[in-house]
Amino acid sequence: MSGASMATGAPAAPAYRKVGSLRRERRWALIGAYAALAVFVVFFLLPPFHMLITSLKSSAEIADLSGNPWTVSRPTLENYWALLTHGSYPIHFRNSVIVTLCTVAITMLISIPAAFALARMRFWGSTVLATGVFLTYLVPETLLFIPLFQIIGGMGLYNNMWAMVLIYPTLTVPFCTWIMIGYFGSIPKELDEAALIDGANHFQMLWKIFIPVALPGILAATIFAFTVSWAQFLYPMAFLVSSDQMVLTTGIVSDLIRGDTFQWGMIMAGALLAALPPLLVYAFLMDYYIAGLTAGATKG
């Protein structure tokens, strides 16, 4: 039979029917992913692009409504130059750096030991306390700033940028503690038991084992604290009034907007420069940040 079939050269009937195609499914999934990402990229990158274009325009070109807002005809760095050489922008920048670095340092100094204690040192009420820490983060700052205003005023720190160093940790410590509790909790218990038997006390265990092992989580928390402090608007708006005490977020809008006069070129240049430090921090720590966010997701 088979010999006869071969002699006629007729194609053999397919043994089974093909159902669907993995390759086609994958192609469609990729097309969908690219489409969604394209929308995402346009949506999020257009504003910074518009800021960049505007910051490179002269005041006259910005005021010229007949021109295309997405192109620049005569690029200039005069906005950047004016910003950095005249006015208080460098002072605001310096204040932001000081407040942010201090906030990050204070946050880490409090959050790391707190998370270690809540994650590892079993004591009465530790679970409730851990939940309580997170709940404090859920209280909106718009509610908190009124009582905080009285506290800061009572401490004589009204219109003093160091007040921000005290206030910002109320936002950063609970969340950072919470995410580090999760991260520390994912470290195998045997690791601290091995350290205990090796002769470590709790401080040595934290310093020599937990911090190095949990570094991705700690860096994720650091980035969060940095971003929150750097971008905080409400508290400096409420507590800082004189230009020499202001941080970037409020300094830009208070110094570069006079009545109904908006210095758009300088505002955009200032905002772009202000976005640089978080970008740099993200760029250097992104790998750790991702590792920190996904820690404990898989067994390995």
């Binding site: 195998p188 045997e190 038991e193 091995a194 350290a195 205990l196 038997i197 470590a200 006390n201 084992i209």
Partner: peptide, 16 residues
Amino acid sequence: PRDRDIAMVFQNYALY
């Protein structure tokens, strides 16, 4: 534990 002068080997190795 650190003062008992013991050493322990764990199931999952517990290497740093």
